[in-house]
């Protein structure tokens, strides 16, 4: 195999060509072992590429939770249980014995019994409580009709 060098056109044959020719003639064959290793890698890559990606439920959860599966799952389950419980038994700020009284009396009792700093929370909760009862009563009346 003869390859021209950069100086061929200007200065005639390059004496280094003797060495380049000799080096090119020295065959560097790939051994059967190396060839087998390379092809084993190729088969491995092909096999992994063709394998269907059936991720388990746990693996999918890992992806969803960004790797924090156990803590995220525990937190999520706790929140779900709490939500379910609030749905079954909504919290009430006022004790049971105040039920016979009217709303205004109950609000008065609540404002007097709670710390001053928590007034805003009581107003919000009380408002929710009234809204909740009104909605429920409205639904009952509609059902009675």
């Amino acid at each position: 195999m003869k390859m021209t060098t950069d100086t061929d056109e200007n200065t005639g044959p390059d004496p280094l060509d003797l060495f380049f020719d000799a080096a090119r003639d020295e065959a560097t064959a790939v051994s059967p072992q190396l060839r087998a290793r390379i092809l084993a890698d190729a088969s491995s890559v092909q096999a992994s590429a063709n394998r269907p990606q059936h991720a388990s439920l746990w693996q999918r959860l890992r992806v969803w939770f960004g790797g924090w599966t156990a803590p995220s799952l525990a937190g999520g389950l706790t929140a779900a249980a709490a939500g379910f419980w609030f749905g079954v038994a909504p919290p009430c700020l006022l004790p049971r014995w105040t039920r016979p009284f009217g709303y205004k009396t109950r609000l008065f009792i609540l404002m007097r019994s709670a710390p001053r700093s928590s007034g805003w929370m009581i107003r919000y909760c009380w408002g929710f409580d009234i809204w909740h009862r009104q909605t429920r009563n409205r639904a009952c009346r509609a059902g009675a009709k």
């Binding site: 088969s43 092909q46 590429a49």
Partner: peptide
């Protein structure tokens, strides 16, 4: 072809390219 699962393509590519890379790396 190799990416589509053709094993012969892997062999052909190995025979075409690996000797050149081996020569280069050896030198």
């Amino acid at each position: 072809q190799f990416a589509q699962g053709d094993r012969m393509a892997a062999q052909t590519l190995t025979d075409r390219l690996a000797p050149r890379i081996l020569r280069f790396a050896a030198r």
